[in-house]
């Protein structure tokens, strides 16, 4: 019986959302979201400001209450699947004066699996160091986090996600205000995660890079405008329906998609 259940859980997609509505006061922030993300995809969540991208992620992680709907992670509720979920929060939410080094922050990724009272082992430390190396920050491991540049801070967070060894990741704007080197490092990391069969959902701002970085795309503006493989979904028509007609940038981005095909 136990084995059967696990087998079913493995088959179900990493994330299914049915009928999700989140409302503050009288205004819905996102409504009637139906979404199913297949395994092993790099998914971008794209939409204008105030479209509810962060809200969607936070609802998936049970950080905010939902008005209606159902969210399943590998076919089960988030509470049961917590160990398989990784989260990279927005950078602004963190107190950078906190007395921790980059290595400490990365090692936090192992806390979830450790359980109460257990201390961080040598092995986890080594693992965290390895992850820092992978994002090119080995030399900065013992720096206090406020002494890292914005991009380095973001990479530290990603290294933590690596260490966490989850199966599905939620990342809230990892590309916001980072330098080119960091952007490259992040992209490489995402591809690496994908190679290992992980599913990654990324809130993303830069339309121009969507077709280049992500193979799946969710266009969101309070409700899902379109969701599917990027080259099918990322059309001029869909973008217009997500952002309205005025963005000329959209045309360029869509053209790039056409060219890349």
């Amino acid at each position: 019986m136990q084995i059967e259940e696990t087998a079913i859980a493995c088959k179900s997609p990493p994330l299914t959302i049915r009928d999700l509505t989140v409302a503050y006061h009288r205004k819905p922030v996102i409504w009637d979201i139906d979404l199913s993300i297949p395994e092993g995809k790099l998914v971008s969540i794209v939409g204008p400001n105030g479209a509810g991208k962060s809200t969607l992620i936070k609802a998936c992680l049970d950080l905010i209450p939902r008005t209606s709907g159902e969210i399943n992670i590998y076919g089960q509720s988030y509470k049961k699947m917590r160990n398989r979920v990784g989260y990279v929060p927005q950078r602004e939410t963190v107190d950078w004066d906190f007395p921790v080094s980059a290595l400490d922050v990365v090692a936090m990724g192992t806390y979830g699996k450790l359980g109460w009272f257990r201390r961080v082992s040598k092995r986890s430390k080594a693992l965290s160091m390895e992850a820092l190396e992978r994002v090119g920050l080995a030399d900065y491991a013992h720096r206090q986090i406020s002494q890292l540049s914005g991009g380095q801070q973001q990479r530290t967070f990603l290294a933590r996600a690596l260490v966490q060894d989850a199966d599905i990741y939620f990342m809230d704007e990892p590309f916001a205000a980072v330098d080119a080197a960091t952007e490259r490092a992040i992209v490489e990391l995402l591809k690496e995660l994908q190679k290992r069969g992980k599913t990654v959902l990324v809130v993303h701002h830069d339309l121009a890079t969507v077709p280049q970085y992500f193979d799946w795309t969710v266009l969101l503006n309070m409700r899902v405008v379109a969701a599917g493989p990027t080259d099918e979904v990322f059309t001029q028509e869909n973008l217009r329906r997500t952002y309205g007609g005025k963005l000329t940038l959209l045309t360029q981005a869509a053209n790039e998609v056409v060219q890349s095909r």
Binding site: L61, L63, R82, N83, V85, Y87, P89, T93, V94, D95, F98, V100, D104, V105, M108, Y111, G112, Q164
Partner: peptide, 14 residues
């Protein structure tokens, strides 16, 4: 340490 540093993160980690 983790719950003081980032309560939301701690919560998502159980």
């Amino acid at each position: 340490r983790i719950s003081s540093f980032d309560a939301e993160l701690a919560t998502t980690m159980g």
